[in-house]
Amino acid sequence: MIKKANELRLENVPNLRGGEGTVRIINIVEDQDNYGTGRLFGISIIPVGGSIGKHQHVGDFETYYILKGKALVNDNGNEQVLEPGDMTMCKDGDWHSIKNIGDCDLEYVAVILYNKQ
């Protein structure tokens, strides 16, 4: 399967998980193509000052890999600034949030896989 950039589905999600602003998500792999392994493989784009609110993962886990910008991540109460090349993982049962604290769009790969244990 090959998809050109203009064939990838783009979502605009306002106030995601109680966050600020509208998050854009470029869906790289759609649900019907992931063989039941997860529910998200995409690029998330958060505008300056925007965020995804605090939320818990139950039955799955999420990984972010920062591509562009500057993020403030809260990982179970541990706040850290992440920049391009950094990653974070929210394990099953844990909670996290992310905020764009930079001066340009924050872009990162987001992958949510199911916990099969």
Results as ranks from 00 to 15, higher is better:
L106G: 02
V73N: 01
D75R: 08
I46D: 01
I46P: 06
D33V: 11
I25E: 02
V48L: 04
E79N: 12
K99L: 09
G50P: 01
N76F: 07
G85F: 04
P84L: 04
L106Y: 01
I43W: 02
I25Q: 06
G50E: 01
E30L: 11
G36D: 08
I46S: 01
I43V: 07
S44R: 12
Y114R: 11
G93Y: 09
L10Y: 08
E62S: 05
V109Q: 02
G19N: 00
I43C: 03
Q80C: 05
M87F: 10
N6H: 13
D92K: 08
P84R: 05
L8I: 12
Q80G: 03
G18V: 10
V109I: 11
R24W: 05
D60W: 11
K70D: 01
G69N: 03
G50Y: 01
K99H: 05
L72V: 14
V13T: 15
K68V: 13
V81H: 02
I26H: 14
N76D: 13
I101F: 04
I25W: 01
H96N: 12
C104I: 13
D75T: 03
F41P: 02
G36A: 09
G102C: 07
W95F: 15
G85A: 02
V23I: 09
L16W: 08
N100W: 04
K70V: 10
Y35I: 14
G85S: 00
M1G: 14
F41R: 01
G53S: 11
N12C: 09
L82Q: 04
N115P: 09
G21Q: 08
E20S: 08
G59K: 08
I52N: 04
Y65P: 12
P14W: 12
L10V: 15
E79T: 13
S97Q: 06
V29D: 00
G49L: 01
H55R: 11
L10A: 14
V48T: 12
A110F: 02
I46L: 10
N6D: 14
N27A: 10
I112Q: 02
N115F: 10
P14T: 09
V73W: 00
